[in-house]
Nucleic acid binder design. Structure first.
Lengths: 356, 356
DNA sequence: TTGTAAGCGTTATCAG
DNA sequence: CTGATAACGCTTACAA
């Protein structure tokens, strides 16, 4: 295939009978060029739709004007909304975005970091995988001077900007809501005990129980890695949960994918929501409204999280001085009450009236 | 911020007391270097984890080793699955992927094309927006010699590789299934009459009706642009549909987002699926299983579509000669029968038994 | 076998 | 005000 060879400043210079440097001056509003010559050049480049060769610029500046993103899965509405936010900010500021997926795998995450470095990204936005407990990869990025901003899932004690939601508050609200509806035996299903956000959610869950004088029962907390075999994992969890001596009457699930899979497993066992089991999900699914039983959810401002993360990262990239004080920006979550968590549910009411 | 300055071949050469070209030779298995020197260099670069500066390579080769993707929306499981396929192939072959979104808007699509060109992508993968009727943007890409491969939604008569599914067959199967279930008044809701895939789906729908001697009723076909105001559009369509003199008893919906929105609108009006209205969606939603009424769907092999498209594009990019014969690869769809299309539905049965 | 130097497209520094 | 030239990091033809 004959490769597309774009016009260069040299071509322009030749056509107009000028030198390359004059053309460059016109393009960059550089001082020391006559208005006349400048107009000549600008008119011409407008006509031919000239774009400066980005590779040359990047080589010169030693930066790629691109940022890398690592998420666990893009086919997840929460993350794709965040990516939308990141891209809108990045494009506006002239940056490209490379999106990579860790699939909740530590190994893959490290491969992604290397890939991104070898593509000379100017900075990285990351939501760490549920498997990650070793943050040395991120520390070495810091050492190399490559800015990293964490969003959604951040390591506990790393010095970096972080964009997170108030997971404690979110989990508290979810749990409290279930309690107020009259469910006292609430199970909590979450990703992995090593993630800070999961810890915060568990703390919120515990705090709500404690407020209402309900004993915390460790048997009611389940962990799921959400890897490739998520279906098996959730099947096992649901089996275990349903066969507990003191079977829970409500579930608070901590993530998108988890919620979907748990609901599938429950449905398979003919557990009706919320009659047999109340349910609140920590999720951003657009489809929450049309599930068999519309889902009560704690939702997160995904778009804003993405925008904030991108702004912070680009700010750090473009800042002249080293950051001395890292920020942690915390967004609030929102409880949307639908039917899945109601004691006397509308769906029960409807199905009764339908059968008269 | 002090910029990260990676090691260069000059640095390596200085350390080892060699010249840049010798280092380069070692890295590229170039002929004319002693095994000894080569080992020396390779050992060292392994130790320090040297990566060649991608910008320099790209500038030199006049190519970016990146491909651009244009889809309508990434927060759509069908497209995010396709992107997964694209990325897996692209990364394996050393290419980056820039993903852009048209949001079903012609203007935005053209902006994206320009963006991608100005980032010097080596080729573009595109699923055209529902609004696009003017393909001049893509023709001018062809003229410039930038390879374009269309997937999912392709212009009718453009000379280019295309990856599509058998939309006719898919629509036929969906419609036939509804007919066999005893629904004869089948409405079809689709994106926009200008897309080839929509035309094929309508043809499949008509052909199935004709096979079973059902008259085609143009009033039963609805078009939705699926833009920002999709909620209003679908509300209007559902209102219109429900107030037809001869109200349909089944709906065959042509896309993901459309299906979700139509179901929300129907639910709002207390239309029960499939009792009051049968439903088949052309969609890849993972959640189809746990909807109020599990959704019968025509699904598409999204991952494979993405992989095939990326392979074809990269093949074209790397091919020395101009392509004389463009390929159109057609994938088959799959009908998954769930409850939303069944005449005597299980869900009715369940809700009766629950109320005894 | 190794080193030198030109060139990819830009911008910046210097002379004219 | 404008033009020539070096530099960014890499590959490669050519000279040593």
């Amino acid at each position: 295939m004959k490769r597309f060879k774009p016009t260069t400043q040299r071509d322009i210079a030749n056509v107009l009978g000028l030198s390359v440097s004059t053309v460059s001056r016109a393009l960059n509003d550089f001082y020391g060029i006559s208005a006349e010559t400048k107009k000549l050049v600008l008119d011409y480049i407008n006509e031919i739709e000239y774009y400066p060769n980005p590779m040359a610029l990047k080589l010169r500046d030693c930066r790629s004007y691109s940022i890398g993103v690592i998420v666990s899965e893009i086919a997840n509405s929460y993350f794709s909304q965040i990516i939308n936010g990141i891209e809108s900010v990045a494009y506006k500021k002239g940056y490209n975005v490379f999106v990579t997926q860790s699939h909740e795998c530590f190994q893959q995450e490290n491969t992604n970091i290397k890939q991104l470095i070898s593509h000379s990204v100017d900075g990285i936005l990351v939501s760490i995988s549920s498997e990650t407990t070793d943050f040395s990869g991120f520390y070495s990025l810091k050492e190399k001077g490559i800015p990293v901003v964490f969003f959604d899932r951040a390591p506990r004690d790393i010095d970096a900007h972080k964009i997170i939601v108030d997971n404690f508050e979110g989990a508290y609200k979810a749990t409290e809501h279930l309690i107020k509806q009259g469910f006292y035996k609430i199970a909590h299903i979450t990703n992995s005990s090593d993630l800070l956000i999961e810890e915060e959610r568990i703390e919120g869950y515990k705090a709500a129980l404690s407020t209402y004088n309900i004993d915390y029962n460790p048997e009611y907390v389940f962990y799921c890695q959400c890897r490739k075999n998520i279906r098996e994992e959730t099947e096992a969890i649901v089996n275990q949960l349903l066969h507990l001596d003191n079977r829970p009457d409500g579930i608070f699930s901590a993530s998108d994918k988890l919620s979907t899979e748990i609901l599938i497993a429950l449905k398979k066992r003919n557990i009706t929501i919320p009659k047999d089991m109340a349910f609140v999900g920590f999720t951003n699914m657009a489809e929450a409204d049309i599930f068999e039983c519309p889902l009560t959810t704690i939702s997160q401002p995904a778009l804003e999280i993405g925008e904030a993360a991108a702004k912070l990262l680009i700010g750090q990239i473009e800042s002249k001085s080293t950051i001395s004080q890292y920020k942690t920006k915390i967004f609030e979550t929102e409880l949307t009450i639908r039917e899945s968590s109601l004691k006397c549910s509308k769906s029960e009411f409807v199905s009764e009236s339908l059968n008269q």
